[in-house]
Amino acid sequence: MTDALLTRLSSTPLLAVVLTLAAYLVGNALYRRLKQPSWLPPILLSAVLLAGLLALIGLPYAIYQQGASWLTFLLGPATVALGMPLYQQLPRIVELWRPLVVCLPLAATLAALYALGIAWLLGASPEVLASLAAKSVTAPIAIGITEQLGGRVPLLMGALLITGVTAIPLVSLAARLLRISDDRLIGFALGLNGHAIGTVRAFDLSPTAGAFASLGMSLTGIFTALWLPLAWHLVGGLG
């Protein structure tokens, strides 16, 4: 693609949107063709395809991000829309409110602390630490948290992708080892640890698993948004 044509196309959101949708559609088609492996979700395939397309046409990521910014904005309404399955499964959620209230703060806190601990031991800078802190939170909330902490959103997005992709097989493996077959527990674990990517996988299992994944994702985001910025500033940004 010539520089003049690339500059003209990238001056509007059209190119970024077309590339994103094309990568998504092809990624989903490959996912179905590969018989829907849990360890290779379509979002990972789509991300790899999109990165390849950007490299192929020579489009800088910063320019692509500007064009795709309105797609990022739509993450908020999409997250809010998950309230419908929560409402539909409300009686089942009420049945487990006590164990959910007990495990959520501990699990959400550990999700942030283990990533920060490993990165700190490896000598990561405060900026990198700030970018990884919210890696288990759904993107619309995680972006706001990362900006408050002084991290980099592109690095956060990579951490979100890795976290969501790895959470799916790990939660499935843990469920098999512990002989857990309750869709409510599996779904909650997928949403808590794998945010939106885990929630998509949970809906593949059952509507009940999807609803509890939505609950886990939402509560993790709210809880982390409340405590993480405060704790970060109290310890001086781990600097």
Score class of each variant (00 low, 15 high):
66 Q>T: 14
19 L>S: 07
236 G>V: 01
76 G>K: 07
85 P>Q: 02
48 V>H: 06
123 G>S: 08
94 V>W: 13
224 T>C: 15
71 L>A: 10
109 T>A: 13
201 R>K: 15
212 F>K: 05
76 G>E: 11
122 L>P: 04
60 P>I: 07
86 L>G: 06
27 G>V: 03
78 A>D: 06
60 P>Q: 08
209 A>C: 06
153 V>I: 13
206 S>N: 06
139 A>T: 15
28 N>F: 11
49 L>M: 11
18 V>E: 06
54 L>C: 08
171 V>D: 08
13 P>W: 03
11 S>I: 00
121 L>G: 13
228 L>C: 11
37 P>Y: 09
179 R>N: 14
162 I>N: 01
194 G>Y: 01
238 L>D: 02
115 A>L: 07
35 K>N: 15
175 A>P: 06
30 L>C: 12
133 A>P: 01
187 G>F: 00
216 G>R: 02
99 P>K: 09
23 A>F: 02
82 L>G: 02
157 M>W: 00
53 L>K: 06
8 R>H: 12
118 I>R: 04
229 P>D: 07
225 A>R: 10
32 R>Q: 13
95 E>R: 10
84 M>C: 02
135 K>Q: 12
207 P>W: 03
40 L>M: 11
199 T>S: 07
152 R>Q: 13
218 S>G: 12
192 L>G: 03
51 A>F: 09
52 G>H: 12
73 F>E: 10
226 L>N: 10
29 A>M: 11
92 R>I: 01
93 I>Y: 04
20 T>M: 08
64 Y>F: 13
212 F>D: 03
153 V>L: 04
15 L>M: 09
51 A>M: 13
77 P>N: 08
56 L>W: 13
50 L>D: 09
23 A>T: 08
24 Y>M: 15
211 A>R: 04
201 R>C: 11
231 A>Y: 07
107 A>M: 14
197 I>M: 03
171 V>S: 12
32 R>W: 09
203 F>M: 07
194 G>V: 01
113 L>S: 06
120 W>T: 13
93 I>A: 08
104 L>C: 09
39 W>Q: 12
143 I>E: 07
105 P>Q: 09
85 P>N: 00
146 T>K: 08
166 T>M: 14
134 A>D: 07
113 L>D: 04
103 C>M: 15
230 L>K: 14
91 P>C: 06
91 P>E: 05
77 P>K: 05
99 P>D: 11
28 N>D: 14
91 P>T: 01
164 G>K: 01
47 A>R: 05
119 A>R: 04
33 R>A: 15
220 T>Q: 09
45 L>S: 07
10 S>A: 14
44 L>T: 07
120 W>S: 15
70 W>R: 12
103 C>F: 14
89 Q>Y: 01
133 A>R: 03
147 E>A: 11
94 V>E: 12
93 I>N: 03
93 I>R: 01
41 P>A: 08
13 P>C: 02
172 S>I: 10
29 A>Y: 10
169 P>A: 10
3 D>C: 05
235 V>G: 09
16 A>I: 05
133 A>N: 07
144 G>K: 14
106 L>E: 04
22 A>M: 11
108 A>L: 04
43 I>W: 01
145 I>G: 05
8 R>A: 14
